[in-house]
Simulated scan of single mutants.
Amino acid sequence: MRPAAILRAGILASLPFLPTTPATAWDRHVRQGETIARTNCARCHAVGRVGASPLSAAPPFRELHRRYPVADLGEALTEGIRTGHPSMPEFRFDPDQAEDLIAYLKSLER
């Protein structure tokens, strides 16, 4: 076999191990939103698909879409989100962070 043919055979053999689709912008938003949630919110809220919230007054993020249209939270997240329970600090996110966090919350709806 010629070197070029060997190289081609090696590349073709490795193709099944490569991702079939590249990460989309949506996937990046979701990952970044998850990081924001884990960094800022996990002390009180369950931010994953399972588990109870560490603070019983803080609803699990996977249930927020049942209470609010999470797509509409952007303004509240950028202007300063506050809730009725006194232990929640006020959070203000920049618009990109708010978009990322909303993408993550929407991913939990599935």
Score class of each variant (00 low, 15 high):
5 A>Q: 15
3 P>C: 00
23 A>I: 02
12 L>R: 12
73 L>N: 00
16 P>K: 10
64 L>Y: 05
81 I>P: 12
62 R>C: 01
29 H>I: 00
5 A>Y: 01
110 R>N: 03
49 R>E: 14
107 S>Y: 03
20 T>K: 13
91 F>W: 12
8 R>H: 04
31 R>T: 05
28 R>N: 07
54 P>S: 11
90 E>N: 01
14 S>H: 02
16 P>M: 02
69 P>S: 05
39 T>R: 13
20 T>A: 10
26 W>P: 12
1 M>W: 08
15 L>S: 06
74 G>M: 02
100 D>M: 08
32 Q>T: 07
13 A>P: 13
80 G>Y: 05
4 A>I: 05
62 R>P: 07
59 P>V: 03
5 A>E: 14
100 D>W: 03
97 Q>C: 01
60 P>G: 01
26 W>I: 07
31 R>L: 10
27 D>Y: 08
30 V>L: 11
15 L>R: 15
50 V>F: 13
84 G>Y: 01
35 T>D: 14
28 R>H: 02
63 E>D: 10
7 L>N: 09
76 A>F: 06
24 T>Q: 08
11 I>A: 13
28 R>V: 02
79 E>P: 05
21 T>I: 07
29 H>L: 15
23 A>W: 05
103 A>H: 12
3 P>H: 02
103 A>S: 10
89 P>D: 03
92 R>S: 04
25 A>H: 08
84 G>D: 09
29 H>S: 07
24 T>P: 13
37 A>Y: 00
75 E>G: 04
83 T>R: 15
40 N>L: 09
87 S>V: 12
57 A>E: 15
9 A>S: 14
26 W>L: 14
35 T>A: 11
61 F>W: 04
14 S>C: 10
76 A>H: 13
32 Q>E: 10
83 T>S: 15
9 A>W: 03
60 P>C: 00
56 S>T: 09
103 A>Q: 10
91 F>D: 00
19 P>K: 03
41 C>T: 01
56 S>F: 14
3 P>M: 00
42 A>W: 04
48 G>A: 01
13 A>C: 05
109 E>S: 15
14 S>G: 07
62 R>F: 00
44 C>K: 04
101 L>C: 11
14 S>Q: 06
40 N>K: 12
70 V>I: 11
82 R>A: 15
51 G>C: 01
104 Y>Q: 04
25 A>S: 06
35 T>I: 06
42 A>L: 06
39 T>D: 13
43 R>V: 11
48 G>T: 00
49 R>H: 09
50 V>S: 11
26 W>V: 13
94 D>W: 07
36 I>S: 14
